[in-house]
Design a protein around this nucleic acid. Structure first.
Lengths: 214, 214
DNA sequence: TAGATTGTTAATCGATTAACAATC
DNA sequence: TAGATTGTTAATCGATTAACAATC
């Protein structure tokens, strides 16, 4: 697809563009200029044009961007035109919450299985899926050509589970465990460290009230 | 506390330092140099020293850093030496998962209430807390001096709820709703956009397999 | 004291913003 | 054609890294 390495800063902004364009589309808006989008999204028009141009010229001089087309293109860039098969590892509260979140399916994220090593949970149904024992994980990943594993397990077991996953040919790990995983570089890891996020919020709250303003 | 504005890039790294230092502490390690920490954390020693020095000199030339002391200091900087009162708005799967996550309490994050506008959930117990109707939110925040609201509600209601929250004197919003909130600047917002995170993972997976390597 | 390692300044790198020529 | 707005180059800004003097 794209070969010139795109910076993670740009990639991190794509889903937000995608979200706003989707909303514009739903409102029936057909065209938008970088300046108008800039006003709505509170980022510079310059950045918007730079970002889009990393992937080719999506606009038209003197006219702007076709909302529909741009939305589709960004979706394609993000890989949302394909489906992705996922399993959840750890059927605790968070694992179940993610499994039950319908909106992921709308975007082509398909939950195929959920695993836990607590026998009490085995067989319990979560959205058409039965919780399976961890022992069955490797075979399941291979048989069902799973792309992504969602790790919602305690930090203590994350290292060993991710090693096991690495040997199955999985391509990405969405990691909610509170550790940094160490996996071969052909496996992508996206971390969601919730407590880090909360700590950042706390810092910002406290830094604000010292001098009133920021 | 600190007045010279610290960049968000630095602040975002603090929780990770805190985590590694906690682990070192648990292992009984007393001192560490920026170079050793660099090896473990895979960031440059230079960055580590720069980051710490934003908040004052925590080390000692020729010796390094005292793990214990540094851990405490970073905890203090992040505000983890105080307690923070929180409510959860939206008692769906995610709201319940967060409510049940014990580890937050260990760090001084205290869940004081959980609200939902679904009458079927009212009165249901989640960890010593009864789910309350949304109508009681404002009064509850004021009476209990709540600092932070966790928004685990659908995007459609996020705007109106955050407006209501803004009038209660809340200081921060931990936003899991998939929209950008618009609140007065004295209220800090920390977004956790799960689907954005997942899209980023998808992009990185796909960008990798085109040319084998990155 | 000699050795080690910080704190801090200077150099580099990368990302953002500004400007404008190209062009629809 | 004239006006608008992109695509893209150049300028700026900020963050990271390197280097080294200060000092424990």
């Amino acid at each position: 697809m794209e070969n010139k390495e795109i910076s993670q800063a740009v990639i991190a902004r794509l889903p937000r563009y995608f979200r706003y364009l989707g909303e514009l589309k739903d409102e029936g808006i057909e065209r938008i200029s970088s300046q108008e989008l800039s006003d709505i999204m509170k980022v510079t028009a310059s950045q918007i044009r730079q970002d889009f141009n990393n992937f080719g010229g999506f606009g038209q001089q003197g006219y702007g961007y076709k909302v529909d087309f741009l939305y589709e293109e960004i979706g394609r860039i993000l890989g949302l035109d394909r489906t992705h098969k996922m399993i959840i590892i750890g059927a605790g509260n968070l694992g179940q919450a993610l499994a039950n979140y319908m909106n992921f399916e709308r975007r082509g994220f398909l939950f195929k299985g959920i695993f836990d090593n607590n026998p009490e949970l085995w067989g319990r149904k979560i959205r058409a899926m039965e919780v399976k024992p961890m022992e069955e994980m490797e075979e399941f990943v291979k048989e069902n050509e799973i792309d992504i594993a969602v790790l919602t397990i305690p930090k203590a077991s994350a290292a060993s589970v991710s090693e096991r996953l690495a040997r199955t040919g999985i391509r990405g790990i969405w990691n909610f465990a509170h550790v940094d995983l160490c996996v071969p570089e052909e496996i992508q890891v996206e971390n969601v460290h919730l407590s880090d996020s909360l700590m950042k919020l706390i810092y910002n709250i406290n830094s604000l009230d010292d001098d009133g303003r920021k």
